[in-house]
Design a protein around this nucleic acid. Structure first.
Length: 813
DNA sequence: GTAGGGTTAG
């Protein structure tokens, strides 16, 4: 160690360099000490490089002396000539034999041949390819010592080497301390930033380059543009991207294949698929990466069909898809979502021998999770290499179905393999705990997020906030919100909906106003997300206040906000207000129509629902699956059997919409309530959902109404088999037996319920007093404060027996 | 006979 310090003191290094290189050397020393067979060097300065030579030989197990090399013979001919050594090293490096290239370099040093700047240039790239920072640092020492640092080729090589090894700050330091810079050194540094995802830094440096350079036209070239486009893509900066595009055309650099590819990527990452496709179509020459970039553009923008179409076109043009292409089309299949296409591409991936790449494996895990097929997702995970991203894909998959125990088990596994979790890991873990409100587990995830310094990250924070709100710990949610370093619109929507969920309407509005003050302009998106939050929790008072704010901003009649208002009012039972907003909207899309149709249906306005549906068809719009949920719901409510059958057939046959569980349950309800119990039972069995408890419950309810014994027993058996802990089934079944005076069976069911500890779920009611929810359970008087008693008294005076008044905020679920 | 910088995929 003393020798190293001595070596460093002797040179004219800046102090920062010294301490950093010292640190790196120290790690080399520690590694050497760990490998007990190696002794520490003892004497002169050149030994510095010997450190890393030993380390490298340990790490890479290069057995140079025992291997015969094809170029080995040449050594005898060229002897101690630096050129012959250098070309030997270079030739091996070019063929990808990086270990061997390094061995030749070490041999050359041993033979006391002095390297020149070309040798360093080549060997830096070798250490970069091996991504061996220790070798690189030792080379850096040697370069400083031998005085080659001022050479442009050498210094730019070091910039790239450090950034590829993950030491971006060291790369910048070299860049800053370079006495002379040329286009390549600038480009190397800009590329280093954009490749590391430090897009802002990349663009800053780009503008510095424009200011600093004597003539920027001499400095900016196709390399600069490619990196800058990548930075714009990372930030979603359309404006800068567009101006770069214009300039690339002016400079005549747009025909470069890298510039073209990065332009396409920039436009598609900014969401402008039209421009991306135009650039793609206008390119004179395309390579595999160009095609992959365009396919990716489509699949990232949820245009799965177009992505797959391009995949076939690419092959018609004679391009052979590679692993990247397969990762893209798998993602496209997940985005549609089309599980048949996904499985087909999986098979193609296997056949083409591309299934072993970790990117492809992760795409498979992700795809199967999105199909809710965790069995195949786990299988794909088991067959792929493990890294943090593949683990994240698995964890996120579990979170989609709320399987937090498995998610946590995967987390424990990745920790046991010494992997470092990132923001995606924690986002997945929190949302896996949210669905079933797994409080203790989520709190542990919180602790771990602090351990890894990710608790104030905005995406981690948002999912943590959502988790606490779901668990009813609104104070913790607020704390989380406050600790997010840079809250975004989603963060605000999250905390506002958290308040709404927990019956704190006043707070929800307070935070909405806060958000209003902080950001200069509230956009459509934030309004509609807040309205949605309030709608789901039937917070009418707050919704009205928000509506007033919306009118002030003039956003009331826009599609998103208008539809959200329609939805909010109808969910709060104020369907006339929904209609007022709906009829005022100058432009409506299918979402707006759906909101109104479903709103009418859910509030019992069956005739209006069906009339509005006809109006929608007349206006030329194509109904969606949501539209038919409203229509069928109205039919079931109104007892319109024939109409229900017709609408169902219209949906499936004329519009090609596959029936969902909701549609089928509605149909069972329509048939069952009208007494067509045999038809209803057949419908359930033939439907795509014979294993869903909900659809059988619907049939069971109908059997209870019509006192249908045989079908009722069969339906109840299905319900018990699929959901053995649901108290409602036991109660209905016991009623069915009771209606036939089968008292033994009734007693048996009651006993069974006792044995299985199944209790009848109590009914809850709640009222809204000055924007605070007060929940009641039958028989519980602990919540009767004076204020509550007063409100209840007022309400009782106005209410008729057995009729709940929805317009005055009194609900009974 | 030898040398530095760029685009796509989870």
């Amino acid at each position: 160690m003393g020798i190293l310090i001595h070596l460093l003191e002797k040179r004219t290094f800046t102090s920062n360099y010294k301490s950093w290189i010292l640190l790196r050397c120290r790690s080399i020393v520690i590694q050497i000490k760990k490998a007990s067979s190696v002794c520490l060097p003892t004497t002169s300065a050149p030994e510095c490089f010997n450190f890393s030579r030993r380390v490298t030989s340990i790490h890479k197990s290069v057995q140079f002396s025992q291997t015969r090399h094809p170029y080995g013979e040449m050594l005898a001919n060229y002897g101690n000539n630096v050129f012959s050594w250098t070309s030997m090293i270079s030739m091996n490096a070019q063929k990808g034999f990086n270990d061997r290239a390094l061995s030749y370099f070490l041999q050359m040093r041993r033979a006391a041949v002095e390297p020149n700047e070309t040798t360093f240039s080549v060997i830096i790239r070798v250490s970069c390819e091996l991504s061996c920072a220790d070798t690189g640092t030792s080379l850096h020492c040697l370069i400083l010592k031998k005085g080659f640092f001022r050479q442009l080729f050498v210094a730019s090589g070091l910039i790239t080497m450090y950034s590829k090894c993950g030491y971006i700050e060291q790369a910048r330091q070299i860049f800053d301390e370079m006495p002379d810079k040329d286009a390549v050194s600038w480009n190397a540094m800009i590329a280093a930033y954009s490749q590391e995802g430090l897009s802002l830094e990349a663009l800053d440096l780009f503008s510095l380059m424009l200011k600093n350079g004597t003539d920027w036209k001499l400095m900016v070239n196709n390399f600069t543009l490619a990196s800058s486009f990548k930075a714009c893509a990372g930030l979603g900066y359309t404006k800068i991207g567009k101006s770069l595009h214009t300039n690339s055309i002016k400079l005549g650099l747009n025909s470069d294949i890298f510039v073209g590819g990065s332009t396409i990527d920039m436009y598609s990452k900014c969401g402008n698929l039209g421009m991306a496709r135009r650039v793609f179509d206008q390119m004179k020459r395309r390579d595999l990466v160009t095609w992959n970039t365009m396919i990716t553009g489509y699949s990232q923008n949820y245009c799965g069909e177009e992505a797959i179409e391009l995949f076939y076109q690419m092959q018609l043009k004679g391009f052979l898809p590679n692993e990247t292409t397969f990762a893209c089309v798998l993602k496209a299949s997940a985005a549609i979502p089309d599980s048949a296409a996904g499985r087909y591409f999986h098979a193609k991936t296997l056949r083409s021998g591309n299934s072993l790449y970790v990117y492809v494996g992760t795409a498979l895990v992700d795809m199967y999770s999105k199909f809710f097929d965790m069995e195949d997702a786990e299988k794909a995970f088991g067959e792929t290499k493990k890294n943090i991203v593949s683990f994240n894909a698995l964890i996120t998959g579990y979170s989609l179905v709320g399987r937090y125990e498995e998610a946590l088990r995967a987390y424990a596994k990745l920790r046991s393999e010494n992997m470092r979790p990132d923001r995606f890991t924690f986002t997945g873990l929190f949302s896996s705990c949210s669905l079933l409100a797994a409080l203790i587990e989520g709190a542990q995830v919180h602790a771990h997020s602090i351990k890894f310094g990710l608790e104030s990250n905005v995406s981690v924070g948002n999912s943590m906030l959502n988790f606490y709100a779901k668990c009813g710990l609104i104070d913790s949610a607020v704390e989380t919100f406050e600790s997010i370093t840079m809250p975004n619109t989603i963060s605000w929507a999250g905390i506002i909906s958290g308040f709404a969920q927990n019956g704190e309407g006043e707070k929800a509005v307070e935070y909405f106003c806060k958000m209003h003050k902080l950001s200069e302009k509230i956009d459509e998106f934030s309004f509609s997300s807040v309205l949605k939050a309030l709608a789901n929790w039937a917070a009418t008072g707050q919704g009205k206040q928000l509506h007033a704010n919306v009118i002030k901003t003039g956003l009331e009649t826009t599609i998103f906000v208008g539809s959200a208002l329609v939805d909010m009012y109808s969910k709060c039972g104020m369907v006339e207000d929904s209609w007022k907003v709906f009829s005022k909207m100058p432009v409506k899309n299918v979402v707006s129509w759906n909101s109104m149709i479903v709103g009418y249906a859910q509030n019992g306005f069956d005739e209006k629902t069906l009339l509005l549906f006809q109006e929608m068809l007349d206006s030329g719009l194509t109904p969606t699956c949501i539209t038919f949920i409203g229509v069928l719901f109205a039919c079931s409510h109104a007892g319109l059997v024939e109409e229900g059958r017709n609408y169902y057939n219209l949906m499936v046959n004329s519009y090609g919409i596959p029936p969902s569980l909701e549609h089928c349950t509605c149909m069972v309800d329509i048939l069952g309530r009208a007494g067509y119990l045999n038809e209803a039972e057949t419908f359930v069995i033939k439907s795509p959902f014979p294993l869903e408890p909900g659809i059988w419950k619907s049939l069971l309810a109908a059997c209870a109404i019509h006192k249908s014994f045989d079908i009722g027993i069969r339906a109840a058996n299905h319900c018990l088999w699929l959901e053995p802990h649901d108290s409602a089934t036991y109660v209905i079944l016991s009623n069915i037996y009771a209606s036939r005076q089968m008292w033994c069976e009734v007693t048996e069911i009651r006993e069974l319920m006792k044995d299985m500890a199944i209790h009848k779920e109590p009914g809850y009611s709640w009222i809204d007093i000055r924007n605070k929810m007060q929940v009641f359970v039958a028989g519980d008087t602990s919540c009767y404060t004076e204020e509550v008693a007063e409100v209840l008294q007022i309400w009782l005076e106005h209410a008729k027996v057995g009729c709940y008044d929805c317009d005055h905020n009194i609900y009974s679920p």
